[in-house]
Amino acid sequence: MKILIVEDEIELLDSMASYLKNEDFICEKASSFFDAEDKIISFKYDIIILDITLPDGSGIDLLKLVKEQSAKTGVLIVSAKNSLDDKLKGLDLGADDYITKPFHLAELNSRINSLIRRRNFDGDEFIVFNEIRVDPSSKEVTVHGKPIELTKKEYNLLLYFITNKNKVLTKESIAEHLWGDDIEMADSYDFIYTHMGNLRKKINKLGGNNYLQTMYGLGYKFTDTLK
């Protein structure tokens, strides 16, 4: 899976690239319109993460170029301007998703994965983590082949964890993923705990392992390697 990240802030570009590289993506970086244009014309990417505001041009123009070059390429727009115009324009021109700065890297990864699933790049329908198998199209989860009944929140939580496996996910990032970024309630962290408890119980009941680790109150990690 080849990804091009277009972002003029080098530091942010590096962060995104290093997080995504860990997820076994091949990441290329472009920090200017010129650079990005060059790369888009020369190579083929599965996913392009596109910052709308570049110092030497508009990401919207790059988006047009991408769609001309290869309609199959998935585009995720990143913008500091949470402006509706950009969003509508971007989505109209064929962008697949839109994320506003500042964002969680785990959320970015989750969006990219969901984009890949929607575009069905490798024909792999299921997301598998050891004995756990998730079918995103029907939203069904099985453990050791036996289906488990999950609530919507539990399902989203599980999917978020598996997508970002082996990564520390902060409570804030989980809360935003589950309830949207409008949420402004401290209670939400307790709910994450409750949902996770339920999720763990349901998986354990069918003989699944406990992959959830607590990281010093910072957040959680879904991993099959020991601490």
Binding site: E9, E11, L12, S15, M16, S18, Y19, N22, A80, K101, P102, F103, H104, L105, A106, K167, V168, T170, S173, M215, L218, G219
Partner: peptide
């Protein structure tokens, strides 16, 4: 802010 947040998240890993 985005840079800050992403760097801390990377550090946490």
């Amino acid at each position: 802010l985005a840079i800050m947040q992403s760097k801390i998240e990377l550090l946490l890993q």
